[in-house]
Structure formats: C-alpha cells, structure tokens
C-alpha cells in the first residue's frame, strides 16, 4: 500500500523527475548513443567506401555515406580466384571443425559429469591442468608438424579439437540434468552412450547452441593455426587471405584485374580492401543477431560454481 502511494506521488518518468536526475538521464543517453556510434561508424564507413565512386574515395570525400555508386571493386575482388579458394577452405574448416568440436566436447563432458565415475576427479584435474599450464608455442609446433600435419587440412581441426573452457561449461550443464532420468533409463538397460545422446544432449540444447556458436566463430576466425601450419595457399583460409590483402599488400588483386598506373591503383586499393572486409564480415553479421538470445544466456555460463 505504502509503496503504491509513494509511486503515485512520484511517477517514474522523465518529465516529473528532478533536475539532477534529468541531467543524469541525458548523460546516460549520450553515453549509450556514443557507444553505438563508435561501434557502428567503422562498419558503415567501410561499406560506404566499398560501394562509392573510386575517385571520390581517393579524394577523401567519403566520410559516412557513399559518394557516387560503383561496384567495380566488388567485381575485381570476386573475380579473384584466391578469394573463393580461401572462402571455400574456411567453409570446410568451420563446418567440419565445429562438428568435431561439439562431438568431442560432449564425449569428454559426459563422463566428467557423472558423480559416480571413479576416474572423474583425476581426469578432471588432467583436463583442467591444461588451462593453467601449457608446453608453449615451440613444443606444440614440433608435435603438430611431427605428426605430419604441416600443410594438411587437419592442422586446422585437430590441434583445437576441444576447448577446455567450453568442455567445463558443457560438463556443468550435464551435471545439472536430474540424475533420476539417468537412473531410470539405466534400469531399462540403456547404455551410457545412449543416455548421453538421448537424455543429456537434448536437455542441454541451449548450452550446446551457445557452445556451437562459440566454436563456429572461433573456427571461422582462426588465423593462428593457419599461419603456423598452412604454407600452401591452396589450403589457406579466408583470414590468411585477408591478412595479405588488408595489412600487407593488395597488389595481387590489382594486377589480376589489369589495373595499371599509380592513380588507378590508389583509387582502387582502399576500395578493394574494404570490399574484402565486407565480404568477410557478412557471415558473422548475418548470423549473430539471430542467435543473440542464446548468446546472452551463454556469457552467463562462464561463472561455473565448483
């Protein structure tokens, strides 16, 4: 009753609040707006440059919105074969890598979630210890190349088969599944494998969705393993291609497009680079907004109590 009366006396709206609160409200508004602008601006600018007229870009006229309209840079980039080779490679690594990641994560997480499993504690320690300590770059490089994985597609999948952190998240999700479900199935003669597949996995679907997303993004963005283990351009993923074009030099595309002369090169270099960024960001920007509901749930998974 009291609360209601109080609220009636001081309705919670901008118009009726005190001057100090109004100032704070405006500051908050400005802060959030600023955050949105600095996040969006680089992307909008990149898109604008990529579709603007080359001469306007070279003059530096494009600041936010496109000036003129020309898709010639898209033409040059999409005609360049290496782009599609690397896009295809990234597709392969992302799809197969993610599938392998999720399967192995479940296989590892399920036994570790079983309280009665007699090796649970030692294996748990065995796995978690790798989060504390690692052999380091050089010994890992030796092992991977020693296994003959240099210039092999498996180098993009096997060394990053399981993320310990993700497996721990999966484990705690599985251990929250009511044990009665497993006991009953077990009395009916169900095997552990069957129970994992038909009880544990379906019940932790939201968690698995988040982990799948994290894994897929990691595989899509993986540059490190490619740089270390893939010297052959025919096997390299998109990120390697992007590094060459964006950071080192775009001359390869200009040359194949038959662009000659310093002026034409200057006009097109920036556009070509920004086209590449647009092409690389499209998959991420189209998928993540759709899975945002899982994402927000996902970041909460990190705080595993143990």
């Amino acid at each position: 009753m009291m609360l209601k009366a109080a609220r009636g006396a001081k309705p919670d709206s901008f118009r009726t609040e005190s001057a100090g609160d109004k100032v704070l409200d405006i500051i908050i508004w400005a802060l959030v707006l600023f955050a949105v602008i600095i996040t969006l601006y680089p992307f909008l600018y990149v898109v604008s440059v990529s579709i603007s007229d080359g001469a306007a870009v070279a003059r530096g006229d494009v600041l936010l919105l496109p000036k003129g309209f020309s898709l010639d840079a898209f033409g040059m980039v999409t005609k360049y074969k290496q782009l599609w080779t690397s896009y295809g490679n990234t597709f392969i690594y992302t799809v197969f890598g993610t599938i392998a990641n999720v399967i192995f994560t479940c296989l590892g997480a399920y036994p570790l979630s079983k309280k009665h499993f007699f090796l649970r504690r030692p294996l748990n320690f065995f796995v978690v210890f790798t989060m504390y300590f690692s052999g380091g770059l050089i010994p890992t490089y030796m092992v991977v190349t020693g296994l003959g994985l240099y210039n092999s597609r498996f180098a993009m999948i096997l060394p990053v088969l399981v993320s310990t952190y993700n497996m721990m998240i999966c484990r705690s999700a599985m251990s929250r599944v009511p044990s009665d479900l497993f006991e009953n199935a077990s009395l009916d003669g169900a095997s552990d494998f069957y129970m994992m597949l038909h009880i544990a996995v379906p019940l932790i679907k939201p968690t698995l969705a988040v982990l799948t997303l994290y894994y897929a993004v990691a595989r899509y963005n993986d540059f490190f393993n490619a740089m270390l283990y893939l010297g052959d351009a025919a096997l390299q993923p998109l990120q390697m291609f992007l590094r060459r074009v964006l950071i080192l030099s775009s001359s390869e595309i200009l040359q194949q497009a038959g662009t000659t002369g310093a002026a034409a090169a200057a006009q097109n270099t920036l556009k070509i680079r920004y086209v590449c960024i647009v092409l690389a960001a499209i998959p991420i920007f189209t998928i993540t907004p759709f899975v945002q509901k899982y994402l927000i749930a996902g970041t909460m998974l990190g705080a595993v109590k143990g």
Binding site: F104, F126, V127, T130, F133, S134, G135, G136, I138, P139, T140, M142, V143, V144, L147, L158, P159, L161, V162
Partner: peptide
C-alpha cells in the same frame, strides 16, 4: 587429444 596436443608438448619443454 589431451595427451597428444597438450601433454606431449609439455614433455617437449
């Protein structure tokens, strides 16, 4: 996986 890609490199130290 852990033995080969995490613990073997530790031996490699």
């Amino acid at each position: 996986y852990y033995l080969v890609f995490c613990y073997l490199p530790m031996v490699g130290i």
